[in-house]
Design a protein around this nucleic acid. Sequence first.
DNA 1: GCGCCGTAGACTGTAGGCGAAAACCAATTC
DNA 2: GAATTGGTTTTCGCCTACAGTCTACGGCGC
Lengths: 225, 225
Amino acid sequence: MLPTTGLPYGTVPRLERPGPLRDRVYGALLELITTRALQPGQHLVESELAGHLGVSRQPVREALQRLNTEGWVDLRPAQGAFVHEPTDEEADQLLTVRTLLEAEAARLAAANAGSAGIAALEDLCAEGERAVDADDVDGAVALNARFHAKVMELAGNAVLAELAGQVDRRVRWYYTPVARQRGRQSWIEHRELIAAIADRDEQRATAIMRQHTEHTRKMYHDREK
Amino acid sequence: MLPTTGLPYGTVPRLERPGPLRDRVYGALLELITTRALQPGQHLVESELAGHLGVSRQPVREALQRLNTEGWVDLRPAQGAFVHEPTDEEADQLLTVRTLLEAEAARLAAANAGSAGIAALEDLCAEGERAVDADDVDGAVALNARFHAKVMELAGNAVLAELAGQVDRRVRWYYTPVARQRGRQSWIEHRELIAAIADRDEQRATAIMRQHTEHTRKMYHDREK
DNA sequence: GCGCCGTAGACTGTAGGCGAAAACCAATTC
DNA sequence: GAATTGGTTTTCGCCTACAGTCTACGGCGC
């Protein structure tokens, strides 16, 4: 019985508050890193970033702290922050974990998804195929991310989603040059995955997703040579 | 050709440096939380903690920042830090993830472990059994953690280990009252796991570890009633 | 007596500043 | 000519101070 004013929800836009500065700094830095405006190994000087973003050093420090725990930057004591440099081994290990998490998400989605969720997946899939047909690479990549996020949402495990989100973003960062290459085949596999989920076939959904993410690993290794 | 001084290694104790203050504050707070000296839901006042630890607010803030990203505290804007309150649903989801990660670790351990690693596991197992026989609950719990950590180490995937470490600690925090109950049966399962790893049987190792962690979930649900 | 408003207190968010450690560079010595 | 050493500069780590925001309590009107 909260709404004594009689105002329906959503009509008042919750008057947008800027939110903690550190979070916006975090977002800005993450953007700069993922877009490679800040290159791996680069030394991040606090005062420089602070001046560039028009804030004090404190929010920058807190943002760097968070980026550090999430693996985007390395914080060497008494030396400062450096953009993390992924090794081949680490990238490979990350892919292994991603495969694991995504496969589990597919299984849970198959177990839990309702018809509404499946319809949403099909919509995303259709959109993605259109993007590929139109050679809209950026759009296709974005839709691919949204598709996987939707599967994760249908899995209904917030903890899993949190971890997978972290891992996924880093994988995409490492593999940006590669990920853009995978076009049509990727969406065919998505279709198969939807079918398995709709059939509530946990085993098949797991297997398809595993195979799907493993294809990415393969492409990377092929490219390396 | 580094040692031009002729001094043998190890004679100079590398003069222990205190390390960043924020890290020690982080450790201290984590200890206080896991031991329930700071209870779930409790409001953590920065200046209070700072005074209590004999430092300024800054290191405390950075430690809280890290604890926040790792899920130990919730940081409500303009309100401060609160020790995270786990819900039943979240605990269940964490267990699901833990099962997943540990099972994968077991599989990788079976694929990669050498005879030295297997011997180390057997040593830990024997120690654990002795602790159980001696009704040394704390010792048994500690050895259980070390056993799982060793399996993770043998898996040889640093990323996986990092995630599993986080998840494991939180699971232990939630389930401390329960975990202490599982005595002998747990170590029997450990023995079976070692056998599977020694046989390089990835499937069986996965299955055993999955069953092993699922037992914990079961005990929790039984206890809830 | 009940509810609303205003004020005071407490805490967080952000900024600025000081001391110290590390890196860099040039002069010096072997 | 190469290594070392001393000084200088940059940058981090931490502390202190101030402004903004939320909460709680007491007075006031109904």
